[in-house]
Nucleic acid binder design. Structure first.
Lengths: 164, 164
DNA sequence: GCATAGATACTCGGATAGCAACTGTCCGAGTCCTCGGGG
DNA sequence: CCCCGAGGACTCGGACAGTTGCTATCCGAGTATCTATGC
């Protein structure tokens, strides 16, 4: 039960892209420089986000990534599932149907109680992530942070001065 | 985000042990035979349960495992954390303090919003698992299943006849 | 001055090594039961 | 018949390989821009 490190990167990059003006693109170099992340590896996760329909990529110079939808319509769960996959964390292998006291399949109409509880917990986890959007996170950021992000995305060549 | 397979084994074994009479022990061979699991590998997980204080092991012939507390006082979370560990699924590496737009540490008094949301979801997941005890699961089992479990634990040499 | 063709530089995408963690297994330490011998 | 002691068998516990998936990286395909040339 350990989440991939790429989840943190993907979430922060998605929030950063939510600060960009509509239509503006941010290349993976720009995003990697924003957080000082290895560019090649970050690209792998950005690609997963594109494949999941969270981001849209444009090739060529002046190309880059942008959100596929408005920040209000992208949930944290969308980003997490893009990296980690949509398969539930718990998979029931029906061991109750094996061994000396195996329950015959015709008696297994109801789902295994153990699996039921684990899936309920998994659902609670996903519901909690689904309730928060990128716009919500953006709203929790301080105004200077948002301003600096916007400035960096507009012109990555000149880093904004550190906050005093 | 994938739970270890041992979680399923540990949960089922714990539920099975909850059916045993107080004071009765079940060896790992007995438990492995119950679900037709590899005995040596199951032992690894049972050992984790002992280390976490969920089970108590007794050596020697007629030895084995028993619950450390009453089934009503052992939550599913206790078993899951015994296998998976207690560290949260999401670890914040504070990447907001790195890179071109690094936020200075003195401005990071509030926790990172991204980490906050991920930890909230992790808490929801754990709360969901903490709300269910082994006794609850035991109550959801059918009466024939409970009876067969009890009979097998009392005498593993003669498997109970299959339910008609 | 303008249009066009070519070269260029920058972007994303897939395919390729390296390492950690889960999976699976074995053997040793300790304990209780059993069996044999002696009283 | 009862007590004692040695042996054996069964238990758990820690230490040791194998495999899958995350970590990290590189190079190729494609495109918009820039430049130089011709009109």
């Amino acid at each position: 039960m350990k989440l991939s490190q790429g989840v943190e990167w993907a979430l922060h990059c998605a929030v950063t892209l939510a600060e960009a003006d509509a239509g503006d693109l941010a290349s993976r170099r720009t995003l990697a420089g924003y957080y000082d992340l290895p560019e090649a590896y970050l690209a792998k996760h950005l690609k997963s986000l594109v494949r999941a329909g969270v981001l849209i990529a444009s090739p060529g110079p002046r190309g880059g990534f942008r959100l596929a939808r408005a920040p209000e319509q992208i949930t944290v769960l969308d980003v997490v599932e893009a990296i980690e996959g949509t398969t539930p964390s718990f998979v029931c292998t029906e061991i109750r149907q094996r061994g000396a006291c195996a329950v015959p399949p015709e008696r297994c109409t109801a789902p295994c109680p153990v699996a039921q509880i684990m899936l309920d917990a998994d659902r609670a986890w996903r519901d909690s992530l689904r309730a928060v959007t990128l716009a919500d996170i953006s709203g929790r950021l301080s105004e200077p942070t948002r301003a600096r992000a916007k400035a960096w995305l507009a012109d990555p060549s000149t880093p904004p001065p550190p906050v005093s």
